[in-house]
Structures are given as structure tokens and as C-alpha cells.
Design a protein around this nucleic acid. Sequence first.
DNA 1: GGTCGCAATGTAAACGATTACATTTTCTTC
DNA 2: GAAGAAAATGTAATCGTTTACATTGCGACC
Lengths: 329, 329
Amino acid sequence: MAQIKDVALHAGVSVATVSRVLAGQTAVTDATRQRVLDAVKALDYRPDLAARRLRSRRNDTIGLIVADIRNPFFTEVSRAVEDIAYQNRMRVILCNADENPDKEALYLDLMRDENVSGVILSPTLRTLARLPLRDYPFPLVLVDRCNPDTVADAVVLDNSDAAYRLTTHLIEQGHRRIVFIYGATSATGHQRLDGYRNAMARHGLDSEAHAVPATADDACQATRQRLTVQPAPDTFIGSNGLILLGITEALREVQLRFPEQVALAGFDNLPWTRLVEPGITVIAQPVYDIGQAAIELLMQRIANPGQSIRRVVLRGELLARGSSMRRAA
Amino acid sequence: MAQIKDVALHAGVSVATVSRVLAGQTAVTDATRQRVLDAVKALDYRPDLAARRLRSRRNDTIGLIVADIRNPFFTEVSRAVEDIAYQNRMRVILCNADENPDKEALYLDLMRDENVSGVILSPTLRTLARLPLRDYPFPLVLVDRCNPDTVADAVVLDNSDAAYRLTTHLIEQGHRRIVFIYGATSATGHQRLDGYRNAMARHGLDSEAHAVPATADDACQATRQRLTVQPAPDTFIGSNGLILLGITEALREVQLRFPEQVALAGFDNLPWTRLVEPGITVIAQPVYDIGQAAIELLMQRIANPGQSIRRVVLRGELLARGSSMRRAA
DNA sequence: GGTCGCAATGTAAACGATTACATTTTCTTC
DNA sequence: GAAGAAAATGTAATCGTTTACATTGCGACC
């Protein structure tokens, strides 16, 4: 493996000059620059990243800690983050916390060990609550989840508002006994719950919400359970794509028809929501944009650590489909 | 930030001893080991990974280059790889090649630069073809995709056989005019195509296959297109989950009923395949197992570079659902 | 008790880059 | 053409570990 001194020798210059050429500095003659680049090519020289990072104390790597990689929301966010990062010559270390605060803490430690330039995180409720107590040695951008009082850059949906609009839509379609099932571990679930409750209260209706672990199986279980209890609900809302999936499975098991026997709606415009007859009404999130906004925010903060805290709030779009339509009288 | 010499000072030993304790070597007295560990804790010392990697020339990082992170198959593989890797104190760099050979080459170079201990790769056809020409400076394990003659460790499904079984099942159910839609860029698609062709030929039926870019949209487009041409097919097979999704969308658009008007089957037991009425028949892959086998294979090779090439072939399971059932006469 | 052997520990040289500082070259300007 | 400034280049220290090699300590054995 060629080293920088081999390149220097080959080009007839000093190692410092080679380093400068590779760093893209200006204080080099065009002629020598060219000789160095030729030598680099001739020897197929590639700088040793470990050495570079040790000496320069820079890393050009960012950490991305997602709550659940199986959730298509996060895979799409990851895609965006990765795209933009590599366009800017940064590496990404992707970690999957599986909605587990311990894993999350572990990965945050790991990021510190790796001396990353910054981290994008979708925190569980516990980590979010502890955020003010800890002091991380890197810039942190939250994505998908934050509280009104969190002191960190963040990119989120207008969760409460979107849930309010979704619930209002259902009420306007004549549904009344609306049950809300949400993920217990995420701030998102709670904010959407707020929106749901507000909409219900404003129309003089009683709220009924169930917290579950944020997996399809748990949501399915909870829905089954609820169906055994009278009075049966009109309508279910799932606070994210995985939960909506679980609810749908449970309703399909007992052969309930949408929207005649039960109405259904939720968050995340996943491909299958269009396929299930007669189409499931959802709030669509601008997923790629969320990821893109997050990494751009992070890079801005890395470049300028002193800048004031920013929060980007994106709007969800209501896609009304058959599952929420007014049922025949 | 505490350094190793601070720890040494605090514990009253030399830096070498500290390093030895942290490396878990045996040639240290219990008493000194304890003093060192106390000092580490007291100073909250964390080794500088860049320095360690530079000096030791080890990295304990593996690269995972998946073909398409949006394909749930690969997200589940990633989960498995990550789980096992971190259990073994290894880091994972996850890269998404988007089925693009150029991106793939870029990431492979990146892995070389990062000096990773090994790489898990799901190659496009082009990269697979070029594999013998290149010589990578790290162990390589292929996952999901390989040829009979590829000279590398690999973990794959019994693709041809599974497709054969699936096609035979459809034929036995009375379907005849079966169209196979597959991803052009992956070896998997071609192997499944072989199995399909064999089954058709054995029953004296004509094959009809269409290659498409491996996305749901392209599969949807191709299906729409095919539906405009007479004679209309009995049945569609999608060579993976994304393509199956695209086909399903196209068939739903024109309101065709399963299995009365058209039958449908494919690969990947994704959650939504159970939800679409009356359930879509699929070959289920042991996804987590595939990822687990891949990283275990890789770790074995890292530990023992000289061992002979291994190929792990896992069996797909046919889940017969309503979409492939015999239609009423 | 001296010597040998081995275990425990210490000293200092790597690892391969970047970069502060020193030096040389080139360009202005008179 | 000389002086001085600025640009280009070179020399060598440095980043924080690991590890080869040197040294010390200690018990066993004769």
C-alpha cells in the first residue's frame, strides 16, 4: 500500500506538499499540483483515514440513530440522509435502536467514541426526557420526535395539527366512536393523541386511546382485545404505519368491511394502504424531505456551532380514501 | 478528554500496562488490573479509536452494502447483521446502492479506504460479473445474490427451486397463461426466472417474462402495459416484494378480482400480502436467518482467511393464499 | 545464596497522516 | 539589480494509541 511519502518521492516533492494538494489548498503551483496528482494516480495512493483522523482530529462522519429500521418512515429518512451526506463527502454510521432506550444510550456512547461530527437521532420518550441532563460532545439534530421545550435542532411533522385534521375528517364523515391506538414510546404518538383528543372534545365526543408498544403485532393484539369489548367502536386510528398495519390485520381477521362495518385511518402513506380495499385514509408525511432537512440542519450547525436553535416543522397531507367515507345510512 | 497516560498516572502504572488491561490480556496482576479499571472509571477514559486503529491496523468494522434499503428484505437483513455485529463488538457501516452499479463501486472503494475488516454485499448483475476481475483487500460475503460459479462466500435462497415450486403450484391450480415479471438488475430475478421457465416447460406451457427495473413503479407500469395487449394473462408472478407490489397496484387500478379474474403470486412474505383480499400467495424467505448467516460467515472468514469458500443455501417456504386458488369453473 | 526462568511491568519506537514553523523561491517595487 | 514581501515548498513535531523489546521482581531449584 502506497503511503504519502511514496507519492512525495515519486513526484519529487515533500510530504507536506502532497498533503496540501490533497487537501485542496491553494498555495501550490499548478505544475507541482499536477505532478502530485499524477503520482497519486500512478501509485493508486489512498490516504489512510485512521492516520488522517488521528492527526486532524476531524472525522467527517455523522451518526444516524433511528428508532426502528423496519418502519418504512425511517428507511426513507435514512435514504435521504445517506444521499445528502455522501454528496458532501461525509460518511454515515446507521444504527437501529429498536425503540429501546438502552440501545439508544449505547449508540450515543458509540458516537462519542467514534468522535463523529454530528448525530441525527429519533429519540424514545425516555431519551428525550433526559436530553437536557446530558451534554453531548457533538451537534445533535432530532428527527420525527421532539417536545415543545426540547433545546436542540429538530425536524418534525405538525403532529398535533395533522391528527386534529384527520380526526375532524372522520367526525365530519359521521363517525363517532373513534378509538385511537398509539405507540407508547414516542413523543410523536403522544402529540398525535393530543390532536385527536382536541378534535374529539371540540365536537363533544369522548376520547378512547390505547397505548401499545410500537409494533404491528402489539397493535394487532390490542385491536383484537378491544373488539371483544362492548360497545364496539365505529372507527380506529393508528398513530403510525406499523400500528395502522396491526389494526388492519386484526380487523381483517374478523372480516369487518371498510367502511361499512368499521372505518379506519392513520399515519404514513405506505404503499399497501392504497391496496387494501377500499383504500385506507392516511396522513402522508413528506418523508424524504424530513431526512433532507435533518442532515442539512446538521451540516449547518457543524459549520456554525453558535447559531441559534432551529426547528423545522413540516405539514402532513390528508389523503382521504374509502376507509373513512360516510357509511350508508 | 482523558488520555491513556492520564489513566496510567492516576493508577501509578505505565501506559503499556493500561493498554494491556484494556486489551484483556492475561499478563497483569489482579491488583494492578483493578487499579487501572478504577482509574479508567474515575477519569471516564475512552480510548481514541482513530489512534487505536492507526497503530493496531485493525478496525473491527464491517461494511454492509445493500441493493435497496427500501426493500423490506434488506432492512430485515440489515437488522440481523447489525444485531450480531454489535454483539461481537464490531461496527457496521451501512450503504445503500439503490441498485446502481456505480454507487456500488463507489461504496466498495469507500470500504477499502475505511480499511474495514470485511464486507457483506448484495451485488447487482454487473458487479457480480466483474467480481472475479477485481481483488478486494477485505473478505467479502455475498448475500441474496450470487451465480453458480462465483468464487466467494455467499448466503442465498434456493431461488430457482422456489420459483419452480411456486409456478408448479399455480399450474396445479389450473392457471395457464402465467406472466413472470422480474428485476433486470439482480441475479435473483434471473434464477427465479429459470425456475419459472422450467416449471412451465415441464407442463408444456409457454413462458412469458418481462424484465423491469427493480422498483414498484416500474413493475406497475409494465403490468399496465401488458394488460392492454391481447390475449390477457391468467396470472402474474412478481420476482420480489417490490415488483409484486407494483403488479398488485396495477391490477387493483383496473379492478380485477383475485383469483376470479386474475391470479397472483410472488416472492417475499411482506405484511401487506396478507391484507390484500383474499391474501396473496408468496414464497416466504427466512430473512433474519439470511442476515445472520451472512455475518457469521464473514466473521468466520475474518478469523480464518484460509478456509474454503462456503455457500449457504436456505429454503423458501410456499405460503398458498387466496390469490392463487383455483377459480370457479 | 546464586542463578535461572518466567511473569509483570516499563520504555520508547512505531502507525501514517497533518500542520506549525522554517526555509527557499518568486515576484514587486524602486 | 537589490530589498522586501508574498508565495511555494520543506522539515520535523505531533496526534494517542499499541507493541517490540528491555527491565525488574520473584519464586524455584540446586
